[in-house]
Design a protein around this nucleic acid. Structure first.
Length: 886
RNA sequence: GCCCGGGUGGCGGAAUGGUAGACGCAGCGGACUUAAAAUCCGUUGUUCGCAAGGACGUGCGGGUUCGAGUCCCGCCCUGGGCACCA
């Protein structure tokens, strides 16, 4: 057998053999527990996989392989998220049809995944753009539609002028489109939404039931943004006290509602603000002077024209206009002016607020600018007088002042008592509001799942019946998006024209669904991927769900992961799935960064504020003097020219070295600063293992477990005991570390173990020691098995070298023997006053008295104890003795 | 501004409140070699000392404890998310 790691000799061979016997085919034996391990659904880009992507797939593979060997039925599938903007944009650029292009890219992904030895069950694979899949995406859409969870409304939406489509709120970062980087515009068009807000509370509550990184859960909590407050009515006074008398007194006063989380500050309300889009605007303006009304209308017009980024930026100076109307503060009966200002958003709460400038920074800023009175009503402490309160004071630990009968109450008490008061006088009620908005699903693009809705001649909607699904995406040559926000499908008569259920002429909805719809249920389809009669068999989903371990990047924290949770909850309510949460455990891997050259700008070139150099190629960098270059760690991407492919890494060092390097170099969540050199260390490690196993093979006893039983107790040597102890300690650690996603320490444990075995083997005499030979035989076999999830090709090569049949994957993962893990003697620390002064060897069973006795008797410690009094001795069995003197 | 992470040798990183720096990379010294690569052995936190040994040391300042990288309080730096959400 080989005595060193020579990947070119065997990696392809084993991949071929695995494929021949369909090694990774999903097993569904009834008498075994299940394990569902899943990676995020990838979009197969033309650039292929980088070593960064492998960071996702390798750890999942390690865990799934171990689980299989431990007797689980393992579902470990892979498919491709094929619909969506990236694929379509790429296809337009390359003048290709996205369907065939994406399939080619997917095949390249698969080739690369096979190249690094990932054990996927490819028989379950699919593309989300296949009609046999998107038929059921559409079917789920109709289920949502029937429940009122998919609906259409006119909405001012995020319009991306570059990609010529609307975007979900989640896809807009700081006023720019996440994908194209374009400044997002507002556009008023009819759009399809999913009513995710109906599930806001459940989505929030159930976060407590899942094992996810706290950071991701927190991001979702923030995105859902629950806040408790009070919503109440404000009456518009027909005429301000000082107004002229030609205003007509209305019989029914105008009312609008406001939402506040600080009802305790109501006595400090000195004005109200309506959002520019507030529906009551016209009615209010009807009652004010023409001059005021004109000023307000001009302001409203102006704010419509502002881009999202201008309007939203918080550092922008407050703008607004007095409407000329007043409302009554219900707490004290005072009239307060009503302003319109764009810092109040129509999309949250009621689109109107009570403004308390003394206790809210935004209201404070506005009041200062417009000269509105600022009345403090909360004091940080009872002995601080109102004049001494530093404003704005927004903290919630304080007491009410200037607040009538509520004066003196603490903020929390007053929130309750004033809430009760609002409810008692029937002007409002306590209410919970969420920041979460409904999920905008319409896209005015070709390459997506068509929305299965038909309109009749009067514009009435109906969902396409199940037996008429799928609504096929037509295969056309030209599919570029329209300039005006219309979908390319609207220009295809064969698609557009259709017969409605009552036989009359109708037309189809021409928007397609955003890509996140497809990835909101693919994990269910993997449970039953070839079902022609249903999206999935609920029994199969019941068996496999939830996903036991879901692995992917943290960038999907509030998009995919929130949407998939939502769909799962809807399908649960429909009785189709048995779990409320799709992903029981989530792990986010770190990124892989490449050192990337940036050069100084040349004459005529300017830098953005955020840049400190201009990206250049590695070739160009090589020609420039060092002082003109800045090297930065950047995410690998085709456009930066810094991608390292697994193909490159495998050809240089082998697939197993690549796998081990990615597992070992840092913790799973941390970013890797890539260097090819690091893999050399893994080559050394694997070669050491080949050397050790091939050495042991010379004296390998294949039925070592049987021979061990018949070994006389007197034949058991210290070396053999040590080897067996290391073996079982390592088994215990490797298993726990893999389960805990601590792959770097699992590899490290194997390194320590193999270093120890190497030391024992240095003495040629091991073959004369029967017990040691048996212990080493066990070691060679178990080392091979433990290594196999991480370095499967090498392990199968070693396995064969030891004369074993088949594959490590089909071998049983050995359970460690706890008795064998026990140490006979241990080194413990001896401290004097908490400082380490000596170490002593004691038997593992040593009593506290024995430990103390021994600790006090060493020469070094005696020196420290001379002439001082022992005040106390702390003994931690197995760890240390601490003698406190004074 | 708000909400999460994270600061440990030259580097990546280990450490249920109990011997800080495991394991690896890089470096240094040596063996083997005509030589190099590969491999193997030794060494490597800082500092004082010939040595034995000592002092210091986990971003900074306090605290709790017999004992703190780990827990508490207050800062600094850094990565990420959200951002006029009332």
């Amino acid at each position: 057998m080989l005595s060193r790691y020579e990947p070119a000799e065997f990696e392809a061979k084993w991949q071929e053999r695995w494929k021949e016997i369909d090694l990774f085919k999903t097993r569904e034996d009834l008498d075994r527990p299940k394990f569902y391990g899943l990676d995020f659904f990838p979009y197969p880009s033309g650039a292929g996989l980088s070593v960064g992507h492998c960071r996702n797939y390798i750890p999942t593979d390690v865990l799934c392989r171990m689980k299989y060997m431990q007797g689980f039925n393992v579902l470990h599938p892979m498919g491709f998220d094929a619909f969506g903007l990236p694929a379509e944009n790429e296809a337009i650029k390359r003048k290709r049809h996205p369907a065939e292009m994406i399939e080619e890219y997917g095949e390249n992904y698969r080739r690369q995944m096979d190249l690094i030895g990932i054990g996927y069950d490819w028989s379950r694979s699919f593309y989300s753009s296949e009609p046999s899949y998107y038929k059921w995406t559409q079917w789920i859409f109709t289920k949502l539609y029937e429940r009122g969870l998919a609906y259409q409304k006119f909405a001012a939406v995020n319009w991306d002028p570059v990609d010529k489509t609307v975007l979900a709120d989640e896809e807009v970062i700081g006023g720019r489109a996440e994908r194209s980087g374009a400044l997002v515009e507002k556009k008023l068009i009819p759009q399809w939404f999913f009513k995710i807000t109906d599930y806001a509370q459940q989505l929030l509550d159930d976060l407590d039931t899942i094992d996810w990184p706290e950071g991701i859960k927190n991001q979702q909590r923030n995105w859902i943004g629950r806040s408790e407050g009070v919503q109440f009515k404000m009456s518009v006074v027909s005429a301000p006290a000082s107004a002229s008398d030609d205003l007509v007194v209305k019989s029914k006063p105008l009312e609008f509602e406001v939402f506040t989380t600080r009802i305790d500050t109501i006595f400090g309300m000195t004005f109200c603000v309506l959002a520019p889009e507030h529906p009551l605007m016209d009615k209010i303006l009807a009652g004010v002077s023409p001059a005021d009304a004109a000023a307000v209308r001009a302001y409203v017009e102006q704010s419509k024209g502002l881009s999202e980024i201008n309007r939203m930026s918080a550092d922008r100076e407050k703008t607004g206009v007095f409407t000329g109307a007043y409302a009554v503060n219900p707490a004290n009966g005072q009239n307060v002016p009503i302003y319109v200002a764009d810092y109040v958003l129509m999309g949250y709460g009621t689109g109107a607020i009570m403004a308390v400038p003394a206790h809210d920074e935004r209201d404070f800023e506005f009041a200062e600018k417009f000269g509105i009175p600022i009345v403090p009503v909360i004091s940080p402490a009872l002995d601080i007088v109102a004049e001494d309160i530093e404003l704005p004071f927004a903290a919630k630990d304080g007491f009410l002042v200037n607040s009538g009968e509520y004066t003196g109450q603490s903020v929390s008490i007053a929130q309750n008592s004033l809430g009760e008061w609002v409810e008692a006088c029937e002007i409002g009620a306590r209410k919970v509001n969420f920041r979460l908005r409904d999920w905008l699903i319409s896209r005015q693009r070709y390459w997506g799942c068509p929305i299965p809705i038909i309109y009749d001649k009067d514009g009435n909607q109906e969902a396409v019946a199940e037996d008429a699904l799928p609504v096929f995406l037509p295969n056309v040559e030209y599919y570029e998006p329209g300039q005006d926000g219309s979908s390319p499908l609207a220009g295809i008569p064969e698609f557009l024209n259709v017969t409605t259920s009552d036989g009359t002429l109708g037309r189809r909805e021409t928007d397609t669904m955003g890509g996140f719809a497809c990835s909101s249920w693919y994990f269910l389809r993997f449970c039953d991927p070839h079902n022609h009669d249903a999206a999935f068999d609920p029994e199969k989903v019941k068996y496999w769900m939830p996903v036991d371990c879901y692995v992917g990047g943290a960038e999907h924290a509030v998009m995919h992961l929130l949407y998939a949770r939502f769909w799962t909850k809807v399908l649960y309510d429909l009785g189709l799935v048995s779990v409320r949460e799709p992903f029981a455990r989530l792990q986010n891997q770190g990124q892989v960064l490449a050192n990337t050259p940036y050069r100084k700008p040349r004459e005529g070139e300017t830098l953005d504020v955020s840049e400190d150099g201009i990206l250049c190629s590695f070739e160009e960098a090589a020609t420039l003097p060092q002082e003109d270059l800045t090297w930065k760690w950047a995410r690998m991407s085709k456009s930066k020219g810094n991608v390292v492919t697994p193909d490159e890494a495998v050809s240089l060092y082998g697939a197993d070295a690549l796998r081990l390097y990615e597992l070992f170099v840092t913790t799973f969540e941390a970013d890797i600063q890539w260097s090819n050199d690091g893999m050399q260390g893994m080559v050394r490690f694997l070669s050491r293992i080949f050397k050790i196993v091939s050495q042991i093979q010379e004296g390998f006893v294949s039925d070592w477990w049987y021979q061990m039983d018949s070994l006389d107790a007197s034949a058991i040597t210290k070396n053999s005991k040590d080897v067996r102890r290391w073996t079982h300690q390592t088994l215990k650690k490797v298993e726990a570390d893999i389960n805990g996603f601590s792959f770097n320490t699992a590899v490290s444990a194997l390194m320590i173990y193999s270093n120890n075995l190497g030391d024992v083997l240095k003495d040629e005499g091991w073959k004369e020691d029967r017990a040691l030979t048996l212990a080493l035989s066990e070691a060679a076999e178990y080392l091979t098995i433990m290594l196999s999830p991480m370095a499967p090709h090498s392990s199968d090569e070693l396995w064969e070298g030891l004369g074993r049949e088949g594959f490590c994957y089909n071998a049983e993962w050995p359970a460690f023997n706890a008795d064998l893990c026990e140490e006979d003697s241990i080194t413990i620390a001896v401290q004097v006053n908490g400082k380490l002064r000596d170490t002593i060897e004691v038997s593992a069973q040593a009593s506290r008295e024995e430990m103390e006795e021994l600790a006090k008797s060493t020469e070094k410690i005696k020196g420290y104890l001379e002439g001082v009094m022992i005040r106390k001795v702390i003994i931690v069995p197995g760890k240390l003795v601490n003698i406190v003197v004074g």
